[in-house]
Nucleic acid binder design. Structure first.
Length: 496
RNA sequence: GGGCCGUUAGCUCAGGCGGUUAGAGCACCGGAUUUUUAAUCCGGUGGCCGCAGGUUCGAGUCCUGCACGGCCCA
C-alpha cells in the first residue's frame, strides 16, 4: 500500500467502489424526471411548496456544516437544490443521510436526481429542498474551471461534449442551428416544395466545380465520389414530373479549411418548375427575411460588430457591368494579358497560371464581393463560368444567374436552369476543355445520363443553392464555420 | 502555401532580465461552517513548462527544427 498522493481520477474511481459497498449503484438504469429547470425557474411563484422530481449534472457545490447548496444543470439551465442535515435520505439506503452522502460521494460532474419541494431561499432563489437523493452517474474526470469555462479552442473543437457541458451559450448555437433548418423546411413545405433524398455516393460527380473525395464500392466494383452537389439529381426529379423539390444536402469538397470553408458542409438546393431566376430572387429574399425575423423578431441583425439589414427587396448589381467599371476594362472582351496584369496588381495568387475566367472570378470576389455588406444580388454572370445556367434572354454572353452576397460571403447561387439538352452538352464539352487547360476543379467526366434526362424534357425551372452553414453563422454571430459545426475535423493528435 | 501568435497542474492563467526546490485561482483531499449562488476561512495533494536538438557552469526562460492549435493574408 503506497502513501503516494492520489490524483482525482483515482480518487473518483475509489468512490465508485465505496458506493458499491454501500449498495448504491453508481450507474443505475433510470430516473423519473418530471420537470425542466427552466420551467421551475420561470414559474417558481406559482409552484412553491409543490413536490418535484428533478435531475441534472452537479456544476456547483456550496457545502456548509449542516446545509448544502448545489446547482444541477439540465438541458435548459441550472437549478439550485438544498440538502439539510437529517432531512433527506439516499435512495436505496434508508439509513444514509443525504447530506453526509453528498459531501463524500457527489462531485462536480456527477449526475444526480432529487425528489423534494420547491422553495425560495432568503435571497429569492428557486430551490428544490431535497427529501430523497438518487445517485445517477459518477463522472471520473474533472470538468473545466467553473468561472472561466473551457477557453482552449482546440479542446472546444476536439471535445465538443465538454464545451457543451460547460457552455449554455454553445448549446444555444447548436439549438439555433436546428431551429433554422426547421424553419427553412417549414418555409419551403408551406410553398409546396417536397423534400427528397438523392445519392451521396455518385459515380460521376457534378453540379459544381470542386475536388471530390473518392471511394470504392466493393459490391459494384466501381469508383464512387462523395457528392460535391446534388444539382443534377434534383433536376432529374423535375424531368420525372415533380414541380417543386428540395434537399438538404451534405456536400463534400476535398479542399482547404478556413473561416468560410469546410470539407463537409450543408447545402440546400431547391428547384421550381416554370420559375425563372427572378422568381428565385423573390424566394431567396422572402426566405432569408423570414428566417431573420423568426429568429430575431426584426430584419436588422448584428454580425461580428457589423449591422446587416435583411429588409426585402435586396439590392441588385450586375456582375459584368460592376466589374468592368471597377477594373476599367470590358470583362468579356478584354485581352487575357490585360486581365492578368490587373490580377497581378491586385496581388492574386496564380495570376500567371489561372485561366482568364478564374482570374475574373477572383477579381470579382476581391473587388466587389468582399465589399458587399447588406444582402445583395449579383446578377447576370458571364456564360463561361456558369455551365448550368440558361443564356440571358436579352444580353449576349451573359446567363440568367445570381449570387447572393452578405458581408462578403456568398450565401446563395441560382439560375434560370438550362434545360436545352444540346446546349447543355455543348457547355459540358466547353468545360472539359477548360479542365484540359488546367482547371482541375472541373469534373473530368460528362454525366451523359443527365443529358439523356434533359433530352426527355425538363420544364423551364428556377433553381437555387444556399450555403446553410454560412446562414447559420450569420444568425448565430459565429466567426468561423467551425463554430457552427458540432464535431469539426482536426488533425489527429498523437496519443500519450 | 506565407506571416504573426500560442502550447506551463484536470481547467483558467502568472513567470519570460537565463540563477537554488516552477506560482496562483478553480477542482480534489482533510478540518470549520444552517441561506449560499464563483460562498468563506485554515491546512494539504497535484508539473517530462508541447516534442527533439543546440548554446551555456546552469534553460520553463535564449537559438534551431518538428508537432498541434488560433488569427490574418493568398
Amino acid at each position: 500500500m503506497s502513501n503516494a498522493p492520489k490524483d482525482e481520477y483515482t480518487v473518483r474511481q475509489e468512490k465508485i467502489k465505496e458506493l458499491l459497498e454501500l449498495g448504491v449503484n453508481p450507474y443505475p438504469y433510470k430516473f423519473e424526471k418530471n420537470v425542466k429547470s427552466i420551467y421551475l425557474k420561470q414559474n417558481a411563484d406559482n409552484l412553491l411548496n409543490k413536490e418535484f422530481s428533478f435531475a441534472g449534472r452537479i456544476v456547483l457545490k456550496r457545502v456548509f456544516g449542516k446545509l448544502i447548496f448545489a446547482n444541477l444543470r439540465d438541458e435548459y439551465g441550472d437549478l439550485q437544490i438544498a440538502i439539510e442535515k437529517n432531512k433527506a435520505n439516499v435512495h436505496g439506503t434508508e439509513e444514509l443521510d443525504a447530506l453526509k452522502f453528498f459531501k463524500k460521494y457527489c462531485d462536480i460532474g456527477d449526475f444526480i436526481g432529487v425528489k423534494g419541494t420547491l422553495i425560495k431561499t432568503k435571497t429569492g432563489e428557486p430551490t428544490i429542498l431535497v427529501k430523497e437523493l438518487y445517485f445517477l452517474t459518477k463522472g471520473i474526470r474533472q470538468l473545466p474551471e467553473k468561472w472561466h469555462g473551457l477557453q482552449d479552442k482546440e479542446l472546444i473543437y476536439r471535445q465538443r461534449y465538454l464545451h457543451l457541458i460547460d457552455s449554455l451559450e454553445a448549446r444555444e448555437v447548436f439549438k439555433k442551428r436546428t431551429k433554422i433548418i426547421y424553419e427553412i423546411r417549414k418555409f419551403l413545405n408551406d410553398r409546396g416544395f417536397i423534400e427528397f433524398e438523392t445519392p451521396v455516393l455518385q459515380p460521376i460527380y457534378g453540379g459544381a466545380h470542386a475536388k471530390p473525395f473518392k471511394t470504392y464500392a466493393n459490391a459494384l466494383k466501381t469508383d464512387l465520389y462523395l457528392r460535391i452537389s446534388d444539382e443534377l439529381y434534383l433536376k432529374r426529379l423535375l424531368v420525372g414530373g415533380f414541380e417543386r423539390v428540395y434537399e438538404f444536402s451534405r456536400d463534400f469538397r476535398n479542399e482547404g479549411i478556413d473561416r468560410l470553408h469546410y470539407p463537409e458542409f450543408l447545402a440546400l438546393e431547391a428547384y421550381a418548375a416554370y420559375w425563372d431566376y427572378y422568381d428565385m430572387m423573390k424566394l431567396a429574399e422572402d426566405m432569408l427575411s423570414y428566417l431573420v425575423k423568426s429568429i430575431y423578431g426584426t430584419y436588422e441583425i448584428e454580425y461580428q460588430g457589423e449591422k446587416i439589414n435583411f429588409t426585402p427587396p435586396f439590392k441588385r448589381i450586375s456582375y459584368i457591368d460592376e466589374l468592368s467599371q471597377k477594373t476599367g476594362f470590358d470583362i468579356i472582351n478584354a485581352r487575357e494579358e490585360v486581365i492578368r496584369e490587373k490580377a497581378k496588381k491586385e496581388g492574386l495568387k496564380g495570376w500567371n497560371k489561372l485561366d482568364r475566367w478564374r482570374l475574373i472570378d477572383k477579381l470579382f470576389d476581391k473587388l466587389i464581393g468582399d465589399e458587399i455588406k447588406d444582402p445583395t444580388f449579383v446578377i447576370d454572370h458571364p456564360r463561361a463560368i456558369s455551365p448550368l445556367a440558361k443564356a440571358h434572354r436579352e444580353k449576349p454572353d451573359r446567363v440568367e444567374r445570381f449570387e447572393l452576397f452578405v458581408l462578403g460571403m456568398e450565401i446563395a447561387n441560382a439560375f434560370s436552369e438550362l434545360n436545352d439538352p444540346i446546349d447543355q452538352k455543348r457547355r459540358f464539352e466547353e468545360q472539359l476543355k477548360q479542365r484540359e487547360q488546367g482547371n482541375t476543379e472541373i469534373p473530368p467526366e460528362i454525366d451523359y445520363d443527365f443529358i439523356n434526362a434533359l433530352e426527355y424534357g425538363m420544364p423551364p425551372a428556377g433553381g437555387i443553392g444556399f450555403g446553410i452553414d454560412r446562414i447559420i453563422m450569420l444568425l448565430t454571430n459565429a466567426h468561423s464555420i467551425r463554430d457552427v459545426i458540432l464535431f469539426p475535423q482536426l488533425r489527429p493528435r498523437e496519443e500519450d
